[in-house]
Design a binder for these strands. Structure first.
Lengths: 203, 203
DNA sequence: ATATTATACTATACGGTGTAATTTATTTGT
DNA sequence: ACAAATAAATTACACCGTATAGTATAATAT
């Protein structure tokens, strides 16, 4: 039996974090193609060679950012039906949670970046998105509300599409195009969205 | 008075058209950055020098495509209220007209491309979009319908945002992300959108 | 005479690598 | 417990190959 001396690896998470943060800044400002590794190294305050010590290629670096983003997204707690709160309140809270990804400037920048990249590389986008079923938790909520006789609809999938369509079409995408300015006075719009949804599906 | 012989210029519109069509193909497939002028020349069946005879730079070529696209968009006839038709019919027709830009594969490709580019260059996007007020004609329609006692709402702007949000969030953006596949069986969804809108604003 | 073409060319930018020096944390010897 | 030895991580910098926007030019087609 041979003795193998394994030396403890040093902690490189600080550098890794700096690289990712710098890359996020550069990528969100210029997009993938127009961002050079030299520039990312400069902004991250790190040598270019160190980037390649952590990430084999520019694309791997990008994917790491995507992965981090998705992890953050998945950490949100899902919507859960309760009869103790009005539908309005629950929907409003849920819609605001959905806006989580675009309320913070950094996350909004990433949302813009990914949307932009995914549009021109649909396979990549599909592969990334296919990992989760975004409507799933909301459909369960809808069914619970219907069992509780507060909602009525033919198809929960269709109702979920309407709700997500309203939120994304009225709030999410406009926010991406206006750098969040459209969210400034959007409370009335959010109320109107929920009123519209409930006017169709409420009992 | 000096006689100036102006020689008739030859018609170069054919070449120009070929260039634009080739550029559309390449740009929509690869995006702006990843499209080379050499490749565009090849696909257009034209020498690269000829492209530069028609367009001073890659960006000018791109802008020309944007301009053509917007012209086509503006050629659609606007919605006009009539009491001879049901609201459902008019709204359905209008929504379908709004989907004009994404029903055809080429126009859909351009919509994807522009959305992708505009997201990462918001100033450019804003400048391009600011040329028209997309909701204007629809707001007029809404007001006419209200005067005719078929609709009732507090704010026509808000109602218009809800309608556009529904159409774009449920139909337009999904179509861009799925290369139009989501439009295949979208008739039921479109009916649901209109039912939702009318359940909120119909009399 | 105008438009187009083929071809070669310039200048530059960028992804990624090689390398030798240097920093830094861990291990080991005392 | 402390300093010397050691190996991992980082850095600076030069470098390679390639791609690309745009130009120059001379020949050819219309």
């Amino acid at each position: 039996m041979t003795e193998i001396k394994t030396r403890k690896k040093r902690d490189t998470s600080q550098k890794r974090k700096a690289i990712l943060e710098g890359a996020v800044k550069v990528f969100t400002q210029n997009g993938f193609d127009a961002s050079s590794m030299d520039r990312i190294a400069e902004v991250a305050g790190v040598s270019k060679r160190t980037i390649y010590n952590h990430f084999p290629s520019k694309e791997d670096l990008f994917q790491a950012i995507v992965a981090d983003f998705l992890k953050q997204r998945d950490e949100r707690k899902p919507i859960q039906y309760t009869s103790a709160q009005s539908l309005e309140e629950q929907l409003k809270e849920f819609a605001k949670a959905e806006l989580f990804l675009i309320n913070d400037p950094v996350r909004r920048g990433l949302s813009k970046l990914f949307t932009s990249v995914f549009l021109m590389d649909l396979d990549f986008g599909r592969k990334t998105r296919s990992q989760f079923e975004p409507h799933k938790a909301f459909i369960a909520w809808l069914n619970a509300a219907q069992e509780n006789q507060k909602l009525r609809f033919q198809s929960p999938e269709l109702a979920a599409r309407i709700f997500y369509g309203l939120v994304e079409g009225c709030l999410t995408y406009p926010a991406l195009f206006t750098d969040g300015a459209s969210l400034r006075n959007a409370d009335g719009l959010l109320d109107e969205i929920i009123a519209t949804f409930l006017s169709r599906y409420g009992c």
